[in-house]
Design a protein around this nucleic acid. Structure first.
Length: 576
RNA sequence: CGGGGUGUAGCGCAGCCUGGUAGCGCAACUGCUUUGGGAGCAGUGGGUCGGGAGUUCGAAUCUCUCCACCCCGACCA
């Protein structure tokens, strides 16, 4: 491709609302332009990257035995009513009405459509297992779209669905998909980790997320420093480190703590560490209110809490009036001792002795509280978020935390959808069986942003070769004036194309500095420069985007040199 | 949804308080010079000042209203 035949629209200045590197660089490169909040147009340059990512995903899905298809993005409400999700999905579901008053959703995901397809197409266990996938535009009306295509409302997702006769078969396909996902992210040359995850709103049992590691990631991942254990902090099990509370050494005392409402206030007033305090949160129970008690320095894990018996799901914090009516005092002075409502105590709070908490009287806190002696032995559960340094749940090592960008998520759905929609096949026994299902998603557009987060410097993007918009850029120095340079560059351009190298030839009549800066900004992995100087010596100058030194390569060897650098990633093509 | 903020040329912004000819930088276009790291000079084009209503002789500026976009928050008592 010659730049004069392409649409290259780089900018030196950055639009004011781009906060993270990938968003900033994608705008400066002209890969995407915002149409409206959370909705982007992909330029020819951006689309080249997107297609390369898609192609890797497609090849690995095909290799794993999945069959590509294409489902509609607009889906009738009736399908969603069958599974109950028309009302459950919430405001993220974009609904619309046609001229006849019929209601539709713009698909945020396709469980309903694929299950409807499967119940019509699949009749016998002999057709199973079967895995179908598509690469489709989806829409989720995010509360707050941000970071460009990282968290956009409209996005492209690869979603695959598998159908089985039993759970063993589901487990097999799940493992195949797990391996296929690892192959995809490995091929894309991304630094990623697979982690245990919560299956969330989609439902199901087993679930793993695939995260690209980057400081700007929105998710926190917990890793063991001694084993393979890795989990999203949303679901990582929190252990207390010790089994039972130490013996009590203090007696219960009350302290006036006027104006102290936060753990921080209380720690300051009573000169104790947050680890020696507990805090008491009040949430709605299935019947009335229930208190959740945590160590002062820990945070409630809502996902864990709302799964517990007695706690209303989704989790709903009680408001000040409800708390005053039930307990007699408001927030800021609550504590487990003498609390008139049921409570659940976190494992780590349950092994404290001589701790500090609210006295359930406005302006007072207690110290020297001990479980068993001052408060009845409580119901103990794991309800907090893990923190760095916690013991690893598999008993090997301790946890450290890293940030990640979720780019893939695989679930075992079980029969939730097939039962709701009566997707059954006849088994060997001649009876109808609801098919267990698996569901496997990859955020294709998000991968592009995530790759940039992980691969950039102060000059621009440094594309991993498999998703680079072009493999090689050819820069002629002062081609307008120098006939020699022009002829050599045109000849090399033809030669590189014939060799199956995806080359961008910057044939614009520009000063070299502009070309260097543009090409470094858009991150083409390999660069060759043709200039008078080099031609005199019979050499071409080569530099990798990821390196800072030039290499002089004899003109006669440059094609084979590049082929070797590209490591066989060629794309045979016919010259126009 | 709550709070805050911003809408003026393609992008980044000034002007608004204190009403009186709509500006600057970058980008674009033309010409000349320049040509190994975002060139210089000269010139040119480009605006319903987010929309509507009002006050006024006169509104980018003041008032009302609607809209869009951005940021923060939406357990941590």
């Amino acid at each position: 491709m010659k730049v004069t035949n392409f649409h290259l629209a780089t900018t030196r200045e950055t639009p004011a609302d781009a906060e993270i590197a990938s968003h900033r660089l994608m705008l400066r490169c002209g890969m995407v332009r915002k149409l409206t909040s959370g909705i982007y147009t992909w330029s020819p340059l951006g689309l080249r990257v997107l297609r390369k990512v898609e192609q890797v995903v497609r090849e690995e899905m095909n290799r794993a035995g999945a069959l590509e298809m294409l489902m509609p993005s607009v889906q009738p409400s009736e399908l969603w009513e069958e599974t109950g999700r028309w009302d459950q999905f919430g405001p993220q579901l974009l609904k619309m009405t046609d001229r006849g008053g019929r209601q539709y959703a713009f698909g945020p995901t396709h469980e309903e459509v694929i299950t409807d397809w499967a119940r019509q197409e699949l009749k016998s266990y002999k057709q199973l297992p079967a895995t179908f996938y598509q690469i489709q535009t989806k829409f989720r009306d995010e509360i707050r779209p941000r970071f460009g295509v990282m968290r956009s409302r409209e996005f492209i997702m690869k979603d695959a669905y598998s159908f089985h006769i039993d759970n063993d078969s589901l487990q097999e396909s799940y493992e195949i998909m797990h391996a296929a996902y690892s192959a995809i992210f490995t091929r894309l040359e991304l630094n990623f980790r697979a982690v245990q995850a919560d299956s969330g709103a989609i439902g199901g049992s087993q679930s793993h997320e695939f995260h690209v590691l980057a400081d700007s990631g929105e998710d926190l991942i917990a890793f063991s420093d001694m084993s393979e254990y890795a989990a999203n902090t949303e679901m990582a099990e929190a252990l207390p480190g010790i089994d039972t509370a130490p013996a009590a050494t203090e007696t219960l005392q009350q302290h006036a703590t006027p104006g102290c409402h936060t753990i921080e206030d209380v720690c300051k007033a009573l000169d104790v560490g947050a680890k020696q305090t507990v805090k008491t949160l009040v949430v709605e129970a299935e019947d009335g209110l229930i208190a959740l008690v945590l160590r002062g320095d820990h945070s409630l894990n809502e996902l864990k809490a709302e799964k517990l018996d007695g706690v209303k799901s989704p989790l709903q914090m009680a408001d000040e009036e409800q708390i005053k009516a039930a307990i007699g005092c408001g927030t800021g002075s609550l504590g487990p001792a003498g609390l008139p409502i049921p409570m659940i105590v976190d494992r780590s709070a349950a092994v404290l002795a001589d701790f500090v908490c609210g006295a359930n009287e406005k302006g007072f806190h207690s110290s020297g509280i001990n479980w068993g002696r001052d408060v009845q032995a409580p119901r103990i559960e794991d309800i907090r978020v893990v923190v760095a340094g916690d013991p690893s749940p598999d008993g090997k090592g301790s946890l450290s935390l890293l940030r990640g960008i979720e780019v893939g998520h695989i679930f075992q759905l079980g029969s939730k959808y097939s039962e709701a929609m009566n997707a059954v096949v006849l088994g060997e026994d001649g009876k109808a069986h609801a098919m267990p299902m698996g569901c496997y998603g990859i955020g294709v557009t998000r991968i592009v942003a995530a790759a940039i987060e992980q691969n950039h410097d102060d000059r621009g993007i440094i594309w991993p070769l498999p998703m680079a918009p072009f493999q090689v850029v050819l820069l002629p120095m002062n081609m307008k004036k120098s006939l020699r340079v022009r002829e050599a560059a045109e000849a090399l351009y033809a030669e590189l194309q014939d060799a199956g190298i995806d080359v961008l030839f910057d044939d614009r009549p520009l000063r070299p500095g502009v070309m260097f800066n543009d090409m470094e900004l858009i991150g083409i992995p390999h660069r060759v420069v043709v200039g008078e100087r080099g031609l005199d010596a019979g050499e071409i100058e080569y530099r990798a985007r990821s390196e800072s030194e030039n290499v002089q390569v004899p003109l006669s060897e440059i094609v084979s040199y590049l082929k070797q650098r590209l490591g066989g990633h060629l794309c045979p093509r016919v010259r126009p």
